[in-house]
């Protein structure tokens, strides 16, 4: 895909189930129990088990890789503004990654992302800069 400023990128949807969080916990080494134990999550005041913010950012990065045909990523980041609550059921919850090319200059394309779950933004100012 040619990256041109103003281009809207096709939204990508990921389904996140409790098993995905367990897998991410094991792979990443982030064994914080708020990402797999409702008991612990609720004890610290969360509505239930929440996805690792880094897992949501990893999904956004995968969307960027798909859009850009694995372009070299120069910068990536986001604020974890709202928790993605992942129920202990077979359905899970959807995370949608939308994006647009904000600018292309000096060989750098800045992608402005919008990452939502259940209609709510879950990442604040998610952004990726790739080599264009």
């Amino acid at each position: 895909m040619t990256l041109e400023a103003g281009t809207t990128l096709p939204t990508q949807t990921f389904v996140v189930r409790r098993a995905d969080l367990v897998r991410y916990a094991g792979a990443s080494g982030d064994l914080n129990p708020i990402h797999w134990s409702d008991r612990v999550a609720m004890a610290v005041g969360l509505p239930g088990v929440i996805a690792h913010g880094m897992y949501t950012l990893a999904l956004a990065a995968r969307a960027v890789a798909t859009w850009t045909d694995d372009a070299e990523v120069l910068e990536l980041g986001a604020k974890f503004t709202a928790p993605v609550v992942v129920p202990d059921d077979d359905t899970g919850v959807s995370v949608e990654v939308a994006g647009e090319v904000a600018s292309v200059e000096d060989g750098r394309a800045t992608l402005r992302l919008t990452v939502t779950s259940e209609g709510q933004k879950v990442l604040g100012m998610p952004k990726a800069v790739v080599r264009a």
């Binding site: 612990v40 610290v44 950012l57 990536l76």
Partner: peptide, 10 residues
């Protein structure tokens, strides 16, 4: 368990 990740930038 008392830590929540606020943001991450690379």
């Amino acid at each position: 368990a008392r830590i929540v990740h606020g943001d991450q930038k690379f």
